[in-house]
Amino acid sequence: MTIEWKGVMPAVTTKFTDQDTLDLQMFEVNINAQIEAGVHGIILGGTLGEASTLSDEEKRILVKTTVNIVKNKVPVIINIAEQTTKGAIEAARKAEEDGASGLMMLPPMRYKAGDRETVIYFKEVAKSTHLPIMIYNNPVDYKIEVTLDMFEELLAFDNIKAVKESTRDISNVTRIKNRFGDRLKILSGVDTLALESLLMGADGWVAGLVDAFPAETVAIYELQKAGKIKEAIAIYRWFLPLLELDINPKLVQNIKLAEVATGIGTENVRAPRLPLVGEERKTVLKVIENGLKTRPELPDYKNSDLM
C-alpha cells in the first residue's frame, strides 16, 4: 500500500516468550492496540525491535505476521541495518517479497563509511527495489551523518521519500524544509523532541513510548495538527518523564517495562540484554507508576470535528 510518510509510526518492540522464541500472541495484542489508537504505520526491526538479535527468518515472520494483522489498515515498514551492500539489497528483496510497504534504512553497520560510500550504499539499495525508503539519520548513535548535500544526491531516486530525523538538532527540520520543501518528508525520531519537531514542520513521529502509550502519542500528533497546541503541550508535558526513558542505553528494557504496566507487552528481552534489576529497575518503575497515576483524560482526538 502507498505510504504517506506522516503521522505516528511506532517503532515496535519484538515480543519474546520465556523460551526466547517470538511471542506472536503478545505481539498481536500490541499491534492491535496501536491500530485502535490510530497510528499511521508500523515499523519493525529497529533498535527497539532488537534487530541485531533477530535472525533473517524471524524478521520475515514479523513482516508476514504484521501484514496479516493490519490487513492494509496501515503500511508495514521494516528496518534494514546491514553490514554489507549485498546484505542490504537481499534484505530489501525479502521485505518486498514478504509484503512490506516500505523500508527504513540505516547507513552501513560496524564499518564507519565515508560520505561517498554511504551515498552509494543507499543508491544501490534504492536501485534494487520498488519499495519507498525512509533514511534513518542518527549520527549520535550510529556515528554516520547523512548531510543535506548527501540527500541532494540521494533524492535523484524517486523511491527515497523520507528521513527519520534523529540528529537532535531541531533547526535541521527547517534546513531540510528550506532545501527540499515537501520532496523529503521528515519524521522526528527522538521522543523528547517530537512535539517541537512537529511544530517546526516535521510531517510525523517515529515513536518509542507509543509502544506502551499509543493513544496519548497519537493524541499529541492529532491535536497539534488541528492547531490545538495548548492541549497538545499539556499532554506532552505529562508525557516527558516517560519519553525520557527512550533516550537511554536501556531504552528497550525501559519501554518493555512500560508495556507491561499498560498491559500490552512483556519485559522479555533477548540476551545479551537482560531485564532491569535493583535500583535501576526501581527508578524506571517509579517513572512509569507516576505517569500512570497522573495519566490525563484525552479529548476525542479521533473526531473529525477536531479540525
Rank of each mutant, 00 (worst) to 15 (best):
T129I: 11
H130I: 14
H130L: 14
H130E: 08
L131V: 08
L131I: 10
L131H: 04
P132N: 08
P132M: 12
I133F: 06
I133G: 04
Y136R: 06
N138D: 11
N138S: 05
V140Q: 11
V140S: 09
Y142I: 10
Y142R: 10
K143Y: 11
E145L: 14
E145V: 04
V146F: 14
V146S: 07
V146L: 15
D149N: 15
D149Q: 12
D149H: 10
F151P: 15
F151W: 13
E153H: 11
L155S: 02
N159C: 10
N159H: 07
I160V: 15
I160H: 05
K161W: 01
K161E: 09
K161G: 01
A162T: 12
E165T: 00
E165V: 01
S166Y: 06
R168L: 14
D169Y: 13
I170Q: 08
I170W: 06
I170P: 01
S171C: 05
S171F: 15
T174G: 02
T174H: 03
T174I: 12
I176H: 07
I176M: 12
K177H: 00
K177A: 00
N178G: 00
N178P: 00
R179S: 10
R179H: 04
R179A: 11
G181P: 13
R183W: 14
L184R: 14
I186G: 01
I186K: 03
G189K: 01
V190A: 01
V190C: 03
V190D: 02
D191I: 06
D191K: 10
T192P: 06
A194R: 05
E196A: 15
E196G: 09
S197R: 08
S197H: 05
L198W: 04
M200V: 12
M200I: 03
G201T: 02
D203W: 12
G204A: 09
G204M: 09
W205F: 15
W205H: 11
V206K: 04
V206N: 06
V206Y: 01
A207G: 07
G208F: 02
G208L: 11
G208A: 15
D211C: 15
F213D: 02
A215T: 05
E216V: 01
E216I: 01
E216M: 05
E216W: 02
T217S: 15
Y221A: 12
L223P: 04
L223V: 03
Q224W: 09
K228W: 00
K228H: 11
I229C: 09
I229G: 10
I229N: 13
K230N: 12
E231K: 08
E231M: 07
A232Y: 01
I233Q: 14
Y236G: 08
Y236Q: 14
Y236F: 13
R237Y: 04
R237P: 00
W238Q: 06
L240H: 05
L240W: 05
P241D: 09
P241L: 10
L243C: 11
E244D: 12
E244F: 12
L245G: 00
D246G: 05
I247F: 12
I247G: 13
N248W: 00
N248M: 03
N248L: 02
P249N: 07
